[in-house]
Write a protein that binds this DNA or RNA. Structure first.
Length: 321
DNA sequence: TCACATCTATAGGCCACATTCCTCC
DNA sequence: CAGGAGGAATGTGGCCTATAGATGT
């Protein structure tokens, strides 16, 4: 299954924290990360000094707009919106990210501590789940993963990352599989949710000094040198991975790409003329006209046309958006 | 705490047919 | 053994659906 293949490939990329070579996958670091999450600052209170780091986390969550501007998010499968290229803005302010439309809604629905996520993805654990799901779905393709990779690399290499046992932003809990699993199993809720932790989010400047003090000391389980070594080791291993789907026969891919489709399924060549009309019109914003014309045609000539001989009425309804 | 509703992600199936593989002569 | 013929198997991508899980009420 091609789609599954992509899912796994992206999942593997996202689960780099589960990588045995990733420096923070040991239990101690895991706990430290979770603890740091519980101590994270409110992104709205961030200072300009910390803005770059927070931008990174925002980029992980969403390429654009910044996550804290999203208010709440709702994801729509963009099947009906394919005329809008990925990453382009929608007229209603929503945006297509990968295969999904990220719709910006009323900000007053924001979670108090995590105002940039919908109810289903508010809270640190769900932020992780949110991104993981997006990464593991078609919404984030390999190129997107690669797009984020330099950001992560920059973070890993940055002094802040070196000194921080974990990135101190709620979104950073989304960085890896282990944390995601902790979130899904409820472990994170016991440590990281605003409800369970009466401590308010401290200012990044407030925590910065303590981090700076520990920068040269042994942070968590590894010293700075050990951490650097492990990071290099992880990166070396990561580069050896192959995230590209291997096409065994390029000619078949070409054929499949050019093959006419009806609702995603391959269609017969002898239906090509009619099918092309169906396929192309289904992707147009004004496809309503087409269906109206089709309806008239149906009324005039009965259920004529190969489309109706192959696909019955219940399938027809999906284009009614 | 439980039941229910809602929402979302995920896995897998479907489709046509050119190409590739395999068997037989 | 080599080569041809013929049939079976494979692979390809986009869409859809059933299902599970999470979350809110």
């Amino acid at each position: 299954m091609s789609s599954s293949y992509d899912l796994y490939a992206c999942d593997e990329e996202l689960q780099f924290l589960s990588d045995p070579f990733f420096p923070f996958t040991d239990t101690d670091s895991h706990i430290d990360i979770l603890q740091s999450i519980s101590d994270t600052q409110n992104p709205l209170d961030e200072s300009p000094d910390d803005h770059s780091l927070h931008q990174l986390s925002s980029s992980f969550l969403s390429s654009s707009p910044p996550c804290y501007q999203l208010g709440s998010l709702s994801l729509y499968q963009a099947n009906q919106l394919q005329t809008v290229p990925n990453g382009s803005n929608m007229s209603n302010g929503a945006q297509i990210l990968g295969g999904y439309e990220v719709k910006s809604e009323e900000p007053q629905l924001c979670n108090e501590a995590y105002p940039y996520l919908a109810r289903s993805y508010s809270g640190p654990g769900n932020v992780a789940k949110y991104l993981q799901r997006n990464y593991s779905s078609n919404s984030v393709d390999g190129s997107s993963v690669l797009f984020h990779r330099p950001l992560f690399d920059a973070a890993v290499e940055s002094p802040d990352f070196q000194s921080h046992q974990a990135l101190s932003s709620p979104e950073h809990c989304l960085l890896g599989g282990q944390i995601r699993r902790a979130c899904s199993t409820g472990d994170l809720q016991s440590t990281g949710t605003p409800q369970s932790t009466p401590r308010s989010f401290s200012s990044p400047l407030a925590t910065e000094s303590s981090f700076t003090e520990e920068a040269n000391a042994k942070v968590g389980r590894y010293s700075a040198e050990e951490r650097k070594e492990r990071i290099l080791k992880y990166r070396a291993k990561r580069t050896q991975r192959n995230f590209n789907k291997t096409i065994k026969y390029a000619c078949r891919k070409t054929l499949a790409d050019n093959r006419p489709r009806i609702r995603g399924r391959f269609a017969r060549n002898d239906e090509t003329g009619y099918v092309h009309k169906v396929a192309s019109s289904a992707r147009d914003d004004d496809d309503e006209e087409f269906w109206m014309a089709l309806h008239e045609e149906e009324q005039q000539g009965g259920r004529g046309g190969p489309f109706f001989t192959t696909y019955s009425q219940p399938q027809f309804q999906y284009y009614g958006y």
